[in-house]
Each structure stands twice: as C-alpha cells, then as structure tokens.
Amino acid sequence: MTALFDKKILISLSDTDHDVSQIQNSFLSIVRTANVQFENIFDGYEEAYKDGNVLFIGLKSASQVIKEYIIYHRGRIIDGALQNYSTTEQFVYNTVNPRSEKNNRKHIHSLYENIQKYDTSACGTYLTIKEIGEAIKDYVSIPYTLPIRFRFRLSIPLDDILVFNGFTDHPNSLFGDLKIKFKINLNAFVFAQVNPIISMAKYYTMNKTDLMASGARQTEEH
C-alpha cells in the first residue's frame, strides 16, 4: 500500500458475504516503503569495512506501527474502539507477551538476538554503511535524507491489537464486515547495528571468492 504518514488507512478485515473465523490466526500484511534521514555520513569507517557493517532499521513489533485506530462493524464504529495511543498499548502488550510467541513468526517481532542472525522474524530491513554513504555522499544539508527508498514487510497478528484479544474467547464467526482505519506512527521505527563481528564474518563468507580474486589482482598490479 502507499500512504502518507499523516493520512488514515482503511482496510477491510473481512468480506460482507463471509463471517470471520479463526481471527486469532489472522494478520495484516503490510509492505512499507520509506526514506531515512541521517545526521552524519559515516565517514569514520575505513572503506574496507563499509560493506561488512550493517544497520537494521524497522520496528520492535509490527503492531507498533499503528499510531491510532478505529474499528468499524457493518459500517458503524464499535463503541470504545477508538484508540489514540495504540503504539503504547502494543508496547505494553508485547512486553508481557512470552518470548516464545516472538520467535519464528515471520516479520512480526524484532528480537535483538534474531537481528544478529538475520532472522526472518524481524520486521525491518538491513542497510550496509557503504550503501548509506554512497546514497548521501553528495548531500550538503543536515539531516541527510537517504534518497534510496527501502521496502520491508510487516505482519500484524490481529489479536496483537487489544480490541481483538477478546474475539478469541467468543464465537467470532458471528462477526462480519469488519474494517480498521489507522494511522502510521513514524516515531515507532528503531535502528540497531548488527554485531560487526557477525556481519563482517557473514560478508566475507558470502563474498570470499570475489574478495580473493580482487586481492590477487591488486597483488599483480603491485
């Protein structure tokens, strides 16, 4: 989907001709595209290490991308469904959520140890220092805006949204024609550096042949 951060997004969660079932196993799948701003150009890195140093940019939990939301049932707002502090709500909920539910679920939770393993459970993307430096090297104003847009997928389990928690305790097949309208929370995004020892080792392992060939060419030139 394409949406500005200050615009509300309306998504149908069900079809008018079909009742909802297994809502606890349902999720929203969203592909986000965004630009990033940096306050420096990472010129302190030696050229040989830029490809192997990696930043992760994304969310701690996919549901935290929702800033505020309203739930509609058959065209009418559900009483009490207006939530203006959804990100805080999701943070509290996921804090008490068992860690077992945060592992091995694709694009839903970004645990730090899983980011280090480039695990698919993380909801975000990876950028190398070299990619960032190349993209903003000609910019002179601060903050530097990364002109290359990055895309990543989020999967939001519906029962991670508080208003849907109770649906798992009721015969949810009685509910139909559900819609959610929400806004994206720009401030929910976080970043972390992948452990350089791990990312450098991964880079050299994946590019061993090319690096050895490049080293051989440089030796011949000298």
Results as ranks from 00 to 15, higher is better:
Y49M: 02
I136S: 07
V36T: 10
Q116M: 00
E134S: 13
P171H: 05
L146M: 04
L59D: 09
N53C: 01
S29R: 15
K179G: 10
V140I: 08
P196T: 02
A135T: 03
L158E: 06
L82N: 12
L82P: 01
A201V: 14
T16E: 15
E46Y: 04
I197T: 05
S14D: 11
I161R: 05
Y144V: 06
R76Q: 09
K179D: 13
S12G: 10
H18Q: 13
V190T: 06
L146S: 02
V36K: 05
G58Q: 00
K137H: 03
V20F: 00
G58I: 05
L154E: 15
S141P: 01
H109L: 12
K179C: 11
H18M: 13
Q90S: 10
Y49S: 01
Y85T: 08
A48C: 13
F175M: 04
N187F: 13
D51Q: 02
R99N: 15
G75Y: 02
D43V: 15
I136F: 08
P157D: 06
Q64G: 13
Y118R: 01
I11T: 06
A48K: 07
T120Y: 02
V36W: 07
G80K: 08
T16Q: 15
I161V: 11
F91N: 12
E131V: 03
C123K: 10
Y72F: 13
K102L: 04
E113V: 05
D119S: 03
L55D: 04
Q37N: 04
L13Q: 12
L28F: 12
P143F: 03
Q218M: 15
M212K: 12
V194I: 01
I198R: 07
Q24N: 07
I161P: 07
Y45E: 00
T128Y: 02
N165W: 10
S12Q: 13
I142F: 05
Y49G: 05
V31C: 14
T95Y: 15
G215S: 02
E89S: 14
G75N: 02
G80V: 05
T145N: 01
L55M: 11
V190W: 08
V20A: 07
G44M: 11
T205N: 14
A34F: 12
L59K: 11
D15N: 14
L111T: 03
R99L: 10
D51W: 01
R74C: 09
T88H: 11
I70W: 04
I129C: 00
T88F: 06
L162Y: 10
F164R: 11
K130A: 10
Y144A: 00
S141A: 09
K106G: 02
I180R: 04
P143E: 00
C123A: 14
G75L: 01
I78G: 09
K179N: 08
I197P: 03
N103G: 06
P171V: 08
L178W: 15
N25S: 06
H222D: 08
S214V: 06
P98A: 07
G80T: 00
F191K: 02
